[in-house]
């Protein structure tokens, strides 16, 4: 890493020791404004579809809002005309959970492997990058063709699962790289010096320290699977996942029930985000409290 700082020794000393203002620099306010604008652009369109999903029977796809009711949610859950929403929703959640679990475990293992060099590691690394960047639809069709050649039936829990993993796993491993780069190897060496064996080191040192990072990997695994479209399109088999269902809805449904679907799926997302954030906060709190407890014991022994 090259962090060059212009070493200008000729600068007047007064500049070096100038007191730093304790308040916020002007850039804070500019960037805070930029951040706010970004959030508005990010949420504005989505909030508008949440609002529009609560229209009544007369509702259309644009403002102004016409009436207020839960009609389009009712339509979504009880009308088969708009497609198999409940089934595809359950399948997507199930698939996302499967993908998340596999992604976290496999990425963590791969992350451990890549911390040290091993023969052929570059090959595995580039294979992974290749899988990540390969055009999704191309890969999906390739997987579909391969299944046909082998006489296998494509389904959401076989071919689509594999297709999604070919994208979430490299992603997870890269996130793992970023997480592990902040891991100080000396911690593990200290554990080794204290007599911990390999599995103890992973279980008692590496895993707890990286836990928040693993939650982040899980979050990504879930998102990417839950939204995945291109790789799933040709591999899901006869039963649709939620994005495929939404896709077919965009082609033939021009009512606000499309928007109510967006609202429902966002509610699920908020729930999962809350769960992840909550568990990270819990992990951190547990750490501080156990550190404090350890300190208390230490002080108690001294007295």
């Amino acid at each position: 890493m090259t962090a060059r700082i212009p070493g200008d020794s000729a600068k007047p000393a007064s500049r070096v020791v100038r007191p730093r203002a304790s308040g916020r620099p002007w850039t804070f306010y500019v960037l805070a404004g930029f951040f706010t604008l970004y959030l508005i652009a990010l949420y504005g369109p989505m909030i508008s579809i949440y609002i529009l999903s609560f229209q009544d029977l007369k509702g259309g796809l644009v403002f102004p809002m016409r009436g207020f009711s839960l009609h389009w949610f009712h339509e979504l859950f009880y009308q088969t005309r708009t497609g198999d929403f409940s089934g595809s929703f359950r399948r997507s959640i199930g698939l996302a959970v499967l993908v998340t679990v596999i992604t976290v475990v496999f990425s963590f293992m791969a992350g451990l492997a890549f911390r040290k060099r091993f023969r052929g590691d570059t090959f595995v690394f580039y294979l992974m990058i290749g899988s990540l960047v390969a055009p999704g639809l191309v890969l999906g069709i390739g997987i579909g063709l391969a299944f046909t050649l082998l006489g296998l039936q494509a389904s959401w829990y076989t071919s689509a699962l594999g297709a999604q993993l070919s994208w979430t796993l490299p992603f997870g491993v890269l996130v793992m790289f970023a997480v592990m780069s902040r891991f100080n190897n000396q911690w593990e060496e200290a554990a080794r010096d204290l007599g911990a064996n390999a599995s103890q080191r992973v279980r008692l040192v590496v895993l707890p320290i990286l836990a928040p990072g693993l939650v982040a990997v899980a979050l990504f695994g879930f998102t990417l699977s839950y939204d995945e479209f291109a790789r799933t399109l040709q591999t899901a088999g006869p039963l649709n996942t939620l994005p495929l269902e939404i896709w077919s809805m965009t082609l033939n449904v021009t009512s606000p029930s499309l928007y109510s679907l967006g609202t429902v799926s966002t509610v699920v997302s908020f729930f999962i985000i809350g769960l992840s954030l909550g568990s990270i906060v819990l992990i951190q709190r547990h750490r501080t409290s156990s550190r404090r407890a350890a300190l208390d014991v230490h002080i108690g022994e001294k007295q």
Partner: peptide, 26 residues
């Protein structure tokens, strides 16, 4: 996390959500 929340919803829904804003009568 607030930045990442919208990315949890369907890409397609997120894309469609521009229609009430950018459309002719948006």
């Amino acid at each position: 996390l607030v930045c990442t929340v919208p990315f949890w919803t369907s890409n397609i829904i997120r894309m469609i959500s521009w229609i009430p804003l950018l459309g002719k009568e948006g």
